[in-house]
Write a protein that binds this DNA or RNA. Sequence first.
RNA 1: GAGAUUGUAGCUCAGUUGGUUAGAGCGCUGGUUUGUGGCACCAGAGGUCGGGGGUUCGAGCCCCCUCAUUCUCCCCA
Length: 448
Amino acid sequence: MQKPGLPEGTRDFGPEQARKRAFIFDTIRSVFIKFGFQPIETPAMENLSTLTGKYGDEGDQLLFKILNNGDYLKDADPDLLATKNSAKLIPALAKRGLRYDLTVPFARFVVMNRHNLTFPFKRYQIQPVWRADRPQKGRYREFFQCDADVIGSDSLLYEAELTQIYDEAFARLNIPVTIKINNRKILYGMAEAAGIAAQFMDMTVAIDKLDKIGIEGVRKELLERGIPAEAIALIEKTLGASSPEALRPLFANSETGLKGLDEIEQLYRYLAKIKLQNELKFDVTLARGLSYYTGCIFEVAAQGVQMGSIGGGGRYADLTGVFGMPGLSGVGISFGADRIYDVLDILDRFPEALAESVRVLFMAFDQATHEYAFDCVSQLRAAGIPAELYPEPGKMKKQFEYAAKRNIPLVAIAGETEMQQNILMVKDQASGEQKPLTISELIATCQA
RNA sequence: GAGAUUGUAGCUCAGUUGGUUAGAGCGCUGGUUUGUGGCACCAGAGGUCGGGGGUUCGAGCCCCCUCAUUCUCCCCA
């Protein structure tokens, strides 16, 4: 006999958890649908060549690779095998991998289906992704993302709509959040204004950590990355800006930076027309790691909980270019369903109504009454009421305990007398009250 | 990839400087109650002490290896 277990970083979900997860998915999905997004699904595995090189070197290491079937060592280079060169052997040993996010598979999907799609194409996708990361708080190796992307338009309307989706979805999930917004062009403008355009990436990686390591830490990191002191002074000045307007004078020499400010301001003009229920915050330090973002970027943090971001996204000017379809602009957001679950759990904000849906448990005493009860339970189900019949007639104690454990509110007893009168003795488990009802009366009670 | 932490009954955890037959609470099964759950009382089942190796007369406890958990760094949802 072997001891059962799960791979590191994966989990089972029991009925209670699965119901809560379904609530999260349903809530997010309904908002996506309301904004005109259409569902698609893609395979769990992709060709490794589709995935590699899209997430940076570290991302490549976090990809789960799938060992080829059959004699997978047959075509491996003997020299690489002898020297145990894992990195270079991978392409020969694994031609497929598990998807790392939903955006890159979506880009592939768009390119492959370009002739069947109407642009701008708005799609949503709720599926698991896998990362070979070290599991820890709020971090799993298998987790669900809920993505909404629009591809084939560079209108800032979509940035506004996606912000609205975040706002509405989190309001309906009952999680107060801060939606942080920035623009990659503004970050580029900062680098340009500081005269370090070539070190744009180094700069963004460093300032992204501001709220974590403080201004001193950022200064230190910038220095370590070889950015001159004068440039750092200029960067610090821009970091102090709390609004896009405040940045404008600093970006006199950066056309890109000014463009970024224009975009943010246009987004704000759209959003000024509607009432948001969550905090919207312009944050010049927001950088986001994924290198394909080129315009507005978003990140969502839950208020009052220590948890990594529960959502993120942004605009990418040319995501499909690597798959041979250049010039198609897209923008998208992602909800981290598993972290949203953790936040709801910590804040104790799951709706009460997610409990057991079975309304009535039928119980009987012998075979004859069991058959009568089977008829009754079928009538309830025909009326659309979730109901159950206990499998073994007889011991009442067992049957009542079952009802109590399953949190079933009503118990319908089908005994000899009840059967003869074509009624049921119905007991309210919470109050303990009990009264004889006909089937139609019971159905009416449940539908009330 | 680096560091730390924990691993004993289904669950949460005790277990003394290494010393007979490893305990508790909750849960579970049966009974007090053959037409009534929650409460109470009684009885009972359930443990290769994560796995392997070592030290010792003797290991749940000490040493080594290994697997897994949780957490931190990195990065992210």
